[in-house]
Amino acid sequence: MATDAALRRLLRLHRTEIAVAVDSAFPLLHALADHDVVPEDKFQETLHLKEKEGCPQAFHALLSWLLTQDSTAILDFWRVLFKDYNLERYGRLQPILDSFPKDVDLSQPRKGRKPPAVPKALVPPPRLPTKRKASEEARAAAPAALTPRGTASPGSQLKAKPPKKPESSAEQQRLPLGNGIQTMSASVQRAVAMSSGDVPGARGAVEGILIQQVFESGGSKKCIQVGGEFYTPSKFEDSGSGKNKARSSSGPKPLVRAKGAQGAAPGGGEARLGQQGSVPAPLALPSDPQLHQKNEDECAVCRDGGELICCDGCPRAFHLACLSPPLREIPSGTWRCSSCLQATVQEVQPRAEEPRPQEPPVETPLPPGLRSAGEEVRGPPGEPLAGMDTTLVYKHLPAPPSAAPLPGLDSSALHPLLCVGPEGQQNLAPGARCGVCGDGTDVLRCTHCAAAFHWRCHFPAGTSRPGTGLRCRSCSGDVTPAPVEGVLAPSPARLAPGPAKDDTASHEPALH
């Protein structure tokens, strides 16, 4: 009773807030009518008042009428009001819900409408889902798969039609296919003929059939049928067999079959498995989609049935006599038709004709302190090069084509190399640097090759510096006499390219 009084008091307290929050009759008014909170006449009256005075006034009048009803109607109103779709449509209802007392429970059932309790003993237990329907569909599909699609060729003596089998029958139906081979029951999904010589313990000319048996419980189990008994694959494991010639990621696949039913060829011909030897223990289905393919039931050349050999690369099948050149017997292992072999060759040939990528240039590290003349020119003028003790990398590039010797140069053309002071002394051009340390401070000019250098860098042994005729380390061993002091540049003949010694390969005349 306390809860009923509290709900009535809360409705009177929030009546105006609810009326202002509800700006549309749908969905709240319609939901109240659906849950029998508002009768039909009051529903029509509220809609009429909404058209006349507006939605807030109409709902305020409806809530005032609701306060005169019993506690069950008020409880049902609060339940409908706080439904998710009403809270989404009328956003101003959320503060009312947040301020609702926590001790007021809106989930209690309506009085007088409590459903009768059902004894637990009368409640049926839930049924577990079964796979009976899938099993029945598999039974119905198996006879259809064994139905012949056409008439065999005159040369083929193997013609068999499976008798119709009602689904209610649980007995196995067997077809006489000759040579002791028996087909599987209607619940078998796949059958492959297997030679009895590969099964340990088999006697006589009995041949087993590799099947997948579907049981009534819905589970499946792969086994071997020899005669009327089934054997699990673990009985046929043979770890010492060295003649297993397995197909790549293979499961067994029928390579020879008669049109209309699988079996042995007439005249004692023995149908073979995809792999010879003992049956392997793992009978998992292969991951290669080509091995799941269903080959055609007629020859791809003459479009006739009979004894066919199936290609492992495509769905086509052929007569042995229709092949070019014809085959006398079934080859062992994987067999592919000429079209598949030709496609494989065409895929391999473009790969062989692809040009080989060019090898990157060989990189040879230079000892610290040495650099090529090109690196000396590329440096920024007026700045010493940083990191001189790091190992430089010199790339061996292809030799350029031989060019004509340089033409003779006048001494005026070499004027930018040297600057003559007032006393006739050779001065260095701006930006000249030593080729060893890279520093341009207090550098000297070689009178023979006009290269800038430090005496301490080229002659670290402490050799005394002569007063005139300074030469760098590369030119100090040259027998050519030094030019007379005061000459602007060496003779043009000295600039012609010539053979250089091994220790002077990195010091070429550089223009500054």
Rank of each mutant, 00 (worst) to 15 (best):
S135F: 12
I224Y: 08
Q44Y: 02
K83A: 05
E137K: 01
W65V: 01
D103L: 03
V206L: 11
T46L: 00
C223K: 05
L122Q: 03
A25L: 12
Q225I: 03
Y85E: 00
G197Y: 06
L97Y: 15
V20H: 00
P148A: 07
T183F: 03
R12L: 04
I96F: 03
G242Q: 10
H60P: 00
W78R: 01
S249Y: 09
A138R: 13
T130E: 03
P252D: 08
Q225D: 03
F100Q: 13
D34P: 07
R203E: 01
T72C: 05
R113Y: 08
F82T: 01
A6Q: 10
E136T: 07
K245L: 04
L29A: 01
Q94T: 04
P125Q: 07
D36Q: 01
A258C: 12
I96E: 02
R9N: 14
R257G: 07
A144T: 10
R149E: 10
A61L: 01
S107D: 06
T147F: 15
Q189G: 04
P101T: 00
P27K: 02
A19T: 01
G197N: 13
G204H: 14
K243Q: 07
G228S: 05
T16R: 01
A138D: 06
F236S: 06
L75M: 06
E229N: 04
R139W: 15
C55A: 00
L11M: 02
R174V: 04
S135P: 02
I18P: 01
R9Y: 08
C223I: 02
N244A: 03
A264T: 13
L7G: 01
R92E: 00
R15D: 03
C223A: 06
P148T: 13
L87C: 02
Q173A: 09
K253Y: 04
R149Y: 03
W78K: 02
S187Q: 07
I96L: 05
G269D: 06
Q69M: 00
T147R: 10
Q57E: 06
A121R: 09
A141Q: 13
P56H: 10
F82Y: 04
R15W: 02
A144W: 15
H14N: 15
I18D: 07
N244K: 01
I74V: 04
V20G: 01
S234V: 13
S135I: 13
D34S: 00
L13P: 03
D70V: 01
K114S: 07
L49Q: 00
S249P: 04
A2S: 13
D36F: 00
K245T: 01
I209D: 06
K133R: 14
G267S: 08
A121Q: 02
D103A: 03
R127S: 08
V123N: 10
S169W: 15
S241H: 05
G150F: 14
A58S: 01
K221P: 07
P166R: 09
A134Y: 09
E167Q: 08
K102Q: 15
P125A: 13
D4N: 03
A202Q: 04
A170R: 14
E237M: 14
A33P: 01
A58K: 00
P27H: 03
R257A: 09
P119R: 04
V80Y: 05
A193F: 03
V123S: 07
W65H: 05
A21C: 06
L49R: 10
M184Y: 04
C223E: 07
Y85F: 06
S156Q: 05
E136H: 12
T68A: 03
R149P: 08
A61Y: 01
L49M: 05
L47G: 03
A205E: 06
E167N: 15
L13A: 03
L158N: 13
P119D: 08
F59K: 04
A117I: 07
P124R: 07
F230E: 04
S168H: 13
